[in-house]
């Protein structure tokens, strides 16, 4: 067994991983499942650099998710907490619609970015360091800031344009 502090890694990385995945699959429940799947694999394989490994595997899982035709079963049902179930059932339909609307806006804005810019932004937002992002995207560390700067500007612009279009429609 390596000297990895799995408890700490899990506590700090899992939420980031879910956020990262959610912005790829746009299904909160599925994002949690995939994050769990990534951790299950990490626990099985005990990679040397688990954090970077987790994000790489998560990215691949999300990609496979899009490619795979099968309706995936949620085979980690046993891991779902009752709290999640309660939360889910308590949400009103309006709140869900509102949430979906917000997510759709963000998704559309993100879709306006190039793939590399989007990936860099999501990785940064998920807590990855410049060095980790550089490694995953095959960039120089010095280029990560430039990529993020461009991505943030484009995201803000795309989001703003969507909002303006919505206002005009109403």
């Amino acid at each position: 067994m390596s000297s990895i502090d799995w408890n700490d890694l899990y506590r700090t990385t899992f939420p980031e991983l879910v956020r990262f995945l959610h912005r790829k699959v746009w299904d909160a429940e599925r994002a949690r499942d995939l994050a769990q799947e990534a951790f299950v694999r990490a626990l099985q394989h005990e990679p040397k650099k688990p954090r970077a490994w987790l994000f790489q595997v998560a990215a691949n899982l999300a990609r496979d998710e899009a490619r795979t035709v099968i309706r995936r079963k949620k085979h980690l049902v046993l891991l779902k907490t009752e709290a999640e179930v309660r939360e889910s059932s308590a949400k009103t339909q309006d709140a869900k619609l509102d949430e979906q609307e917000r997510w759709a806006a963000v998704r559309e804005a993100l879709d306006a970015l190039s793939e590399k810019d989007r990936e860099a932004l999501l990785l940064w937002d998920a807590g990855q360091s410049y060095t980790e992002i550089a490694r995953q995207l095959n960039l120089a560390v010095g280029a990560v800031g430039t990529t993020l700067s461009r991505a943030r500007k484009r995201l803000a612009k795309a989001y703003q344009e969507r909002e303006e279009a919505n206002v005009a429609r109403r």
């Binding site: 799995w6 408890n7 899990y10 506590r11 899992f14 939420p15 879910v18 956020r19 959610h22 912005r23 909160a28 994002a31 949690r32 769990q36 951790f39 299950v40 626990l43 980690l76 046993l78 891991l79 779902k80 907490t81 709290a83 999640e84 939360e87 917000r102 997510w103 806006a105 963000v106 998704r107 804005a109 932004l121 999501l122 937002d125 700067s149 991505a151 943030r152 500007k153 995201l155 803000a156 989001y159």
Partner: peptide, 27 residues
């Protein structure tokens, strides 16, 4: 700009509850 982008992304952040790591290990 950075703050605005962060705010946009934050709108698409699902509530995350940590499943038990011990359960994951058991699995």
């Amino acid at each position: 700009v950075r703050s605005e982008a962060h705010g946009i992304l934050a709108q698409a952040s699902p509530t995350v509850e940590l499943p038990s790591l011990e359960e994951l290990r058991a699995y």
